[in-house]
Amino acid sequence: MERIEKMTYLELYELLLEEHRQVFAAQDEMQLESMMKMIIKAARIFVTGCGREGIAARSFAMRLMHLGKETHWLWDDTTPGMQKGDLFIVVNGYGKIGHINYLFDQAGKTGVSRLVITGAPLERTPQEAEYSLFVPACVYKGSDMRVVKSVQPMGNLFEQHLFLLFDIVVMLLTDKMNLTHGQMESRHRNIE
């Protein structure tokens, strides 16, 4: 392949769009359905992640709140304790992020259901989760050979793809929960 530095803007964006198309095509829709059922059923939802994938996770938490789900970003000081009936969504790209694994283990002691979203489902945490969603995009430090490879640095493809995938999930949930965009907008912060 030609060196990235020699590629034009047009060549790069077409290449990146093709990477995302391949990830979407490889996505297991049954896992997405299971994830959505868990979200709908959950009394409360707690979300965590770190780095760029954590930023995508936090944006997902915001949209879940706009859907009317009581949702907490784990690092906020006002986050309550977890309990049975709640859902803990953990984004753990390559499955070996130490403090994320610690939080995952501690949450397991509360009786909460745990969903791990990952690009490395064969690692320890995803295997121990009650549920996992494998996003088949190249992830930073990942070793799963089933992921779509990327010309981008580090975990860019996985991190970018989370934003797109989470937005699609929210759109599907809007329909499944019989909500309108107006109802979502009514929950948007109104003091800006």
Rank of each mutant, 00 (worst) to 15 (best):
W75H: 09
V116W: 11
T79V: 10
E19P: 09
I4M: 01
R21D: 00
R189Q: 11
M1C: 04
G85K: 01
L173N: 00
K69M: 07
K141N: 14
T174L: 15
C50Q: 12
R63F: 13
K37Y: 07
G95I: 02
L103D: 12
L87D: 02
L103E: 11
A56C: 04
I168K: 09
L12Y: 01
I89N: 09
N101M: 08
G119S: 07
Q22W: 04
Y140R: 06
Q27C: 04
A42E: 06
G182A: 14
Q31Y: 04
F46R: 04
G81M: 07
T48H: 03
L103A: 12
G81I: 06
V23C: 06
D175M: 06
P126S: 11
P80Q: 12
G142Y: 11
M65P: 01
G142C: 10
Q22D: 00
M35E: 06
A107V: 02
V91A: 03
V147E: 02
G93P: 06
T78Y: 04
D86R: 00
K37T: 11
K141M: 14
M184G: 08
G98F: 05
K41T: 12
A61E: 05
V170K: 04
V148L: 02
R52P: 00
I97N: 13
K37S: 11
S59H: 11
L87I: 05
I45S: 04
